[in-house]
Simulated assay, not measured.
Amino acid sequence: MPNQSKVQNPESPIPKTPQMNERDFVNDMLSTEKYLKSSYGVALNELSNQTMYQDIQSIYTEVETAQRELYYLMFEKGWYALEQEDTQKIGQAYQQFSGYKTQFPYGPGIQ
């Protein structure tokens, strides 16, 4: 059974009205940045023109930074919570997945 402890800052108060509030706007912006990051990531995987690749990569980096800043803002204001996982389960998952690296063609000595 997962540990249900929340990692969260105290929630900043927001008006409870039908109109969009600050949290709604920031959440909408975060969702948009996540979508853009994903879309630009697909474009980067499929671009063959080096100049266009560099331009899109620069935009991707800006979007990634904006997404991270919005996440931090929401976390700081207590509008984004994380669930704390059990240390033993993290260790088990690490062991499971670290064993997979021997299956890659570059070998276990390269990280």
Rank of each mutant, 00 (worst) to 15 (best):
N3I: 04
L47W: 04
V63H: 00
A93W: 10
P18V: 07
P108Y: 15
A66H: 15
Q4R: 06
N45W: 09
N9M: 05
L73A: 08
L36Y: 13
A81E: 03
L36V: 07
Y53A: 03
N45A: 07
K101C: 11
G78P: 00
N45V: 03
Y60L: 02
E85Y: 14
K6C: 02
F104P: 04
I90F: 09
M1G: 08
A93R: 06
A43G: 07
E62Y: 02
E33T: 04
D24F: 03
Q67D: 07
K37F: 06
Q84I: 06
D55Q: 14
P13L: 09
Q57A: 06
N21M: 01
P15Y: 05
V26T: 06
Q95W: 11
T51G: 05
Y53G: 01
T17C: 04
Q57K: 07
E11R: 10
Y71A: 02
A93V: 10
I110F: 11
W79K: 00
L70S: 00
I90W: 06
E22T: 09
N49F: 01
T61V: 07
G91L: 15
Q54C: 04
Q96H: 14
Y80I: 06
W79G: 00
K16N: 11
G109W: 14
G91A: 08
N49D: 02
K16R: 13
Q111H: 14
L73H: 09
T61Y: 14
M52C: 09
T51Q: 13
I56C: 00
L30H: 01
G109F: 15
I110D: 05
E69G: 10
A43T: 11
I56Y: 10
Q19P: 14
K89E: 15
S31T: 12
N3S: 09
L47M: 02
L36C: 08
Q8Y: 01
K6M: 07
N27P: 08
E85A: 11
K16G: 12
N27M: 12
S48T: 10
Q96S: 12
T102A: 11
V63D: 00
Y53H: 07
P15V: 06
S48H: 10
K89R: 15
G78W: 00
N49S: 01
L44D: 02
Y71N: 05
Q84A: 07
W79L: 01
E83R: 08
E33I: 01
D24K: 01
K6Q: 06
K101P: 03
